[in-house]
Write a protein that binds this DNA or RNA. Structure first.
Lengths: 205, 205
DNA sequence: CTTCCTAAAGACCGATCAGTCCAAAACAAG
DNA sequence: CTTGTTTTGGACTGATCGGTCTTTAGGAAG
């Protein structure tokens, strides 16, 4: 029907206001998808986790796939905050990168090895859903870019070998993070996971 | 209801002559799981791909999960052959490792970016099915061991830096392969994937 | 021939899937 | 109040899921 194209900024509480917070519902959906994957998270479980009714979910988010795409965006925003916190300071250094990866691993370990939602989405849906694949590629690219920025700064500060290629190094770090997610999800020991991170970082020396 | 008698070339209308080959059926199941994942491959599709009856599948393999576990074993055997071909010669060198990774990537590209079945299994089922997780860990370990053997030989031959740690390097390579699978499945360009492999190998220098 | 085994085909099962619809209630604004 | 919108909860849909079962048929061996 007549969809409101400029629905964003308007706060038109013409009637009963939404009692649930869409952001919080999305957050909860993200955690379920994160734990179970796309197909592994059923509507019933999603509704239970989000604590909203079926009707509200379809009214607010469209359908399951749309919800998942929203979740992917939210996940990306989440990691952006992580990046900002660790890598976007005035003068990031190699130590910042070390800190970021260590924190990344700590997060995985603290959340029962849930690992990376984007890696899960890529393997489960990458070949079947081009929009999902694009989300993942964009995510990988933004991660790589953040790393490149830090590495360039580090190079300028003389922290890198002269012949080091920031782009190649950044891509290697991103790849290692994805591999780390696979290893974490497979249940490798904390020690093994820590060694993976350490070795991944050793390419910067 | 007049079925075309010539529709199935070799087999007469109701096929009896050939008892099906469980190995070939397993092979076909593997390829479907490989493309679609565990939950993504339905029984109906599996039967169609394996070209056996429902009854035969359950008689021969138990159930879907057992079939999948058998498939994981078969996949591991498949990669073992790859390892034997590339890394188990009398005197493997760093060049052997290069060859192995390049061939690994070539295989991914030739099979529509199907990437690594073990990585898929880890992310989809690793948290929910300990037996699957164990399969994946065993696989990762055998891959790592094969790499370690080559790297030790290379070290003896003076191809490695003196301070290089074969185990850490091997683990890094395995992690990179898993990350490569994620990237491939996400649809990264051939160029990007090749760079990932190149950078992964650069740690050996 | 008969007996035994295996395989194919498909009916059938209960459960669950994503998604739609409806009724009744809750609440805001005129 | 009325009107309008959003809420919840559950009924309901058709499809599909994994899995069981029965029937029928094709050999192989006695």
């Amino acid at each position: 029907m007549v969809q409101n194209i400029h629905a964003l900024p308007e706060v038109r509480s013409v009637s009963r206001p939404k009692t649930f917070d869409p952001d919080e519902a999305l957050e909860r959906a993200m955690h379920l998808f994160w734990e179970r994957g796309y197909e592994g998270a059923s509507l019933r479980e999603l509704l239970e986790a989000m604590e909203i009714s079926r009707q509200s979910l379809y009214d607010t988010f469209g359908d399951k796939r749309q919800l998942f795409l929203r979740v992917l965006s939210r996940y990306r925003a989440l990691v952006s905050v992580l990046i900002d916190d660790h890598l976007e300071r005035s003068s990031p250094t190699l130590a910042s990168l070390h800190g970021f990866l260590q924190y990344y691993l700590a997060q995985i370990l603290q959340t029962d090895r849930r690992a990376c939602l984007m890696a899960m989405a890529a393997l489960e849906l990458g070949l079947r859903d081009e929009e999902v694949a694009t989300h993942v590629r964009d995510y990988l690219e933004s991660l790589e870019l953040a790393f490149v920025r830090v590495l360039r700064a580090a190079a300028r500060a003389g922290e890198l070998r002269d012949d080091a290629d920031p782009v190649a190094l950044a891509r290697s770090l991103v790849t290692s993070l994805m591999g780390l997610s696979v290893s974490a999800r497979a249940g490798l020991s904390r020690t093994a996971l820590r060694q993976i991170v350490t070795t991944a970082l050793s390419i910067l020396e």
